[in-house]
Every structure is written in C-alpha cells, then in structure tokens.
Design a protein around this nucleic acid. Structure first.
Lengths: 235, 235
DNA sequence: AGCTCAACTTTGGTCCGACCAAAATTCACG
DNA sequence: CGTGAATTTTGGTCGGACCAAAGTTGAGCT
C-alpha cells in the first residue's frame, strides 16, 4: 500500500511520478530526462503514452522540450506560472467585462503597492523610482520610448516589496493587456499627463503619504481605463 | 498568406487552430468536439498527433475529456485558470521562502480587500459579513467547523468587490495553503482569538475606517503566519 | 404498444512497428 | 591531428491493431 495513486490513465500516473520527482528535488533543475525510448522501458509503457506524458509535463511547465533534444527538467519560476495561463486568460479577456475585471485587479494591486511604497520604501527604492521617473520624463516626446519607461515605472512599484511573485505579476499584466494597450493612440500630450500622474504618485510616496499615493494611483489608472473604453467601444 | 502560423509541430498547429476557434466563440461552451478519428480526417493527421493536441487542450483547460466520451468545449472560468497552476505552484511552494512569498501576497490582497470593504461595502455586504462572523462565533468550540466558517468569513471579503477573479483567487489560496494550514494544531482558544480578530476587522469596516481595518487584518494574518512558522520550522 | 435485455457500434486508451529528418557522435581518411 | 563523411541517436509522424466501457439498436417478451 505504498503507492496509492496508481489510478487513472497510464500517462497521468507517469506524469504524477515524474512531477513528484521534480517537486521533491529528486530531479534537479537543468537535469535531462531519459530519452523517450528509455522512458518507455523504465515505465513499461508504449511510446505513445510516454510522449503524452512528456507533452503534459511540458505544458505544465515542469520540463522543456526541444526537437531532437532530451527533455530538460526546469524547476519553474513565477513567470512560468503566469505563462501557463496565457491561452486561458485570452479566453477570459474575450468575454463580457473580462478586460475590466482584470484591470480592476491591477488597480487594486497597484493601489496596495503604492501604499506599501509610501510606508516602507527604502532609499534604494526611492532612487530606483526617481530614476524611472526621470527616464519617463525624458521620453515624453517619443511615444514608443515613453511606453517602455511608463512600464518600467510601474515595474519598480512591483519590485519594491521584494516579493518575486509581484514582478512576475507585472510582466503578466503588461503581456495580457498589451493587445489593448498597444492599440491606443499615443500622443506627447497624453504622455505628459501620464508623466504628471507618475510624478504625483512619486511625490506622495516621498511624502510618506499612503492615502495620497493611492489616490494619485487610482486617478492615474482610472484615467487610463477611460482611455481604453474610449478606444474600444466594448468592455 | 492567410495563415501565418503553420509553423512548429503539427500538434501545436492543431492546438492553435482549435484554441482560436474556442476563443472566437466559433466553438461554444458545452459543444462537443468531433471524435478523434474524425479529427484526424479533418486535419489530415495521424491519431497520435490528434491525441496529443486533445491532451494539450485539456491541459490548458479549454476542453474537458472523459474516457469514452467526446471532448467537450469548456469556456474556462477563473477557477480553471488557477487550477492550471496547481502543479507549478506546488513546485514553487517547495522552495525556500515559497510559502512566505505566497502568503505575503495574500496579506497584501486581503489588506486591500478590507480597505475596499470599509470604504465601499453595501448593506448586503455588511449583512453577509455579519452572518459569516456570527457563524464563526458559534463554531469556536468545534475546530473543524470553525475552519470552515473561518474560510467563509474571508471568502465574503473576496466577494464584496464584485470581481469574479477574487473569489477564484480565494479558492486558490485556501487550496494551495491548505496542506500547511490543515496540519496546524486547532484549539478552541486559538479559535476564540481568531474570532476576535475577525470581529475587530468587521467593526473597523462597520466604522468605515480603512486604516483600522487594514491594521486588524494585518495583525490577524501576521499572527496566523507566526503560527505556521511555529508549526513548520522551515519557511 | 411498452418494456427489457442482449447484441452491436462507437470511442477513447493502449500498444506495436515503422519511417523520416535533424542533430550528435563516431571514425576513417588525408 | 584535423576534417568531413558515415553512423547512431532522438524526437516527430504515421498506420494499423486490440481492448474495455459506454452508448445505440433492435429483437423478443409481456
């Protein structure tokens, strides 16, 4: 009665066994899995099952497969996690209110982030924020460059708490919302307004005023949402 | 030059085509996919490739497969999204600081939630919170029941903003942290303390005092984290 | 006609053996 | 010793086959 999970499809059993080996560290990051033909011998299964299992593990992000190369164990990072959501999020964004639901969570998260920053940001955090802000100002005239420095400013916010999940979340947000964001008209005057918003947020953080920081952030993102709604009639 | 994405493995092409059909609504929720043998004819591919594609789509949560049944298109909900993360999160929780990273995000989220509640909770929200709180108090003596009402109280917090992603996030949190949580000692006296924490949060929300609500929530969850750290030596 | 249960069909799960192309490896030859 | 061709490895694809369980059909009984 050692193994209680021999149930289900053979491929699933195999996936569980290998996934467990990875999770327990028995298979370390970077290590290569045996070739498919070796795996079918080790597990006593057909190649079809082995291939399905390997494909499943690859989909789950636990291994990395390249044509004509052995699968490489890849202990997943936080980005891998969000990456696995891509197709499903694409679906969710399509339906009524999907984009707004996602964007609302972003507003909530960033509202919290600026509060945290106002309360706990250290000297280096402030410096990073200032640097991002300056770069932001310098690119007001170049909309493409501004988009990058804009993203970078927000990224710094996600980085301040020192929790690795947050920068990954930021990358996920920018990636998922990019289709809408990139289609929006970009004008130097809009950039200037956005820069002013960033400046207001920064100053509130500098003043150690969480409420002001949150208010500025909410105003900033709410304005951004209005622009999105203006560009896309639907929600 | 209509289809630009015929590249990559045949199974991937097939996955993209079907995923696109689902995302565009061409294949609606609940609709059944053709049988594997029909798909191999439609796509002109071998059954092995078809099976791999179907398995991949199933892993992504876009379809639902049952033995001896045709795949059912399943327009994924927010829970499906978090469900797809299970194995990868299991990996992330295993590594150094993984649990703390996740729990910290939970603290941040719930801190924001109680602030929102204090600012914007409607009458029905307050009533739901009160009901959950009362149920919580009544189960102080029964640790198993208390665990449920405890979870329920927090769930109401995630429900108040009306964003469907949040309840799904709550379910994900409870599911992912359950292994650690359920192993913790449960005592009526601890339950009582937790109830008092909930009460403090509730009263702060009632008073429309976001700062007090956040402080109470942070005290509550920080205490919970201390208990976790006490039970598990590692982080 | 209505119902029951056995026979048949469908369908996913599994296995086998085979071929291909590209990459890695080996090795003979200059 | 270096180099390029032959060999091996390996993932990707194919076709056919069998099984078991679910659904479907239909004959026979009431």
């Amino acid at each position: 009665m050692s193994d209680e999970e021999d149930t289900g499809r053979a491929a699933d059993v195999m996936v569980r066994r290998i996934a467990l080996s990875i999770q327990t560290g028995e298979l370390k990051d970077g290590q290569t899995l045996p070739a498919e033909r070796d795996l079918m011998e080790q597990f006593g299964l057909s190649r079809a099952v082995v291939r399905e299992a390997v494909a499943t593990l690859s989909n789950k992000g636990l291994i990395e497969t390249r044509p004509r190369h052995r699968p490489v164990v890849r202990k997943p990072g936080y980005d891998t996690a969000f990456g696995a959501l891509e197709s499903i999020v694409t679906c969710l964004l399509q339906e009524q209110g999907g984009v707004k639901n996602l964007f609302d969570t972003r507003i909530m998260i960033e509202a919290m982030l600026v509060r945290e920053a106002a309360k706990n940001a250290g000297k280096s955090d402030i410096a990073a924020l200032k640097a991002a802000l300056d770069a932001n100002q310098e690119t007001v005239e170049d909309s493409d460059a501004f988009y990058l420095t804009d993203t970078e400013f927000h990224r710094v916010l996600y980085q301040i708490p020192g929790n690795p999940t947050l920068p990954a979340l930021h990358r996920a947000y920018t990636s998922w919302l990019a289709p809408h964001w990139s289609k929006m008209p970009r004008l130097p005057e809009r950039n200037e307004l956005n820069y002013q918003s960033h400046l207001a947020i920064f100053e509130a953080i500098l003043m150690r005023d969480p409420d002001a920081a949150e208010a500025a952030l909410r105003a900033h993102l709410s304005e951004a949402w209005l622009q999105v709604k203006e560009t896309f009639g639907d929600l």
